[in-house]
Amino acid sequence: MSVIKEYWHKLSSAKHFYPIAGALLPWFLIPALLMLIWGSWQGLVVAPADYQQGDSYRIIFVHVPAAWLSMMAYMVMAINGAIYLVWKIKLADIVAESAAPIGASFTFLALATGSLWGKPMWGTWWVWDARLTSELVLLFLYLGTIALRGAIDDRQRAGRAAGLLGLVGAINVPIIHFSVEWWETLHQPATVSKFSAPSMHSSMLTPLLVMALAFTLFFFAVLMVKIRAGILEQERHSRWLSALYAEAPETTTTYSPEGEPGRNG
């Protein structure tokens, strides 16, 4: 029991997580890139064209994983924000802060690809489709948390405020999604859903799932990089960090009397 407790305690400290994040990075990044290449090849070249949409459907191999990740990143952000709010674990705040811009990027990607898909399908860049609309609201929720964080100078207060806002947003995301779907059925009963196809052939489904997994791993890879950057920023005055990056010749000059002219003069 105490071993597990100690393990968690270590994992949640910035000092211990910093090297772990560095070690995990290639394990996320390399499979992500390999699967991204394989999935793109399978999806864009090997998979057959859709009998109704032709080649234009192929954008789902980017659009659908991006939309999934936009939701997942929000959950990662909201959960970590809540952890920071309750237990004041600094690392959770760094994770929440790091997840927000990545999630916003995925949301933007989902919106942009959805819009590109709309042009051949509906003839316009934008229709008030329920999924696209709730993605748009999600983008605004992301921008709101990022803006709130930016508007508060005190780091701790900014983290707690963003955490609470993320929590409120997390309760609201399903409600918003449901309300927008409800709204669409009322106002546009004739619209055909994009995913009305009864089942997907495995030649399309497999690359889609591979791409989704690749996007997820890529998300975690970028998250690790951003967490490390966040730790560096937050702990920049701490001793363990300077010990980690201190090079042998530099330390010798620092301790020599002529190495510190500022203190003497």
């Binding site: 929720l141 921008l143 709101g144 508007a151 806002l165 947003g169 918003i176 309300s179």
Partner: peptide, 19 residues
Amino acid sequence: LTSRGGALLALLVLPLYVP
């Protein structure tokens, strides 16, 4: 309440008003 930026409140609130 104690943050900077006047339009921030509207940016935060309006998406939540959708439902």
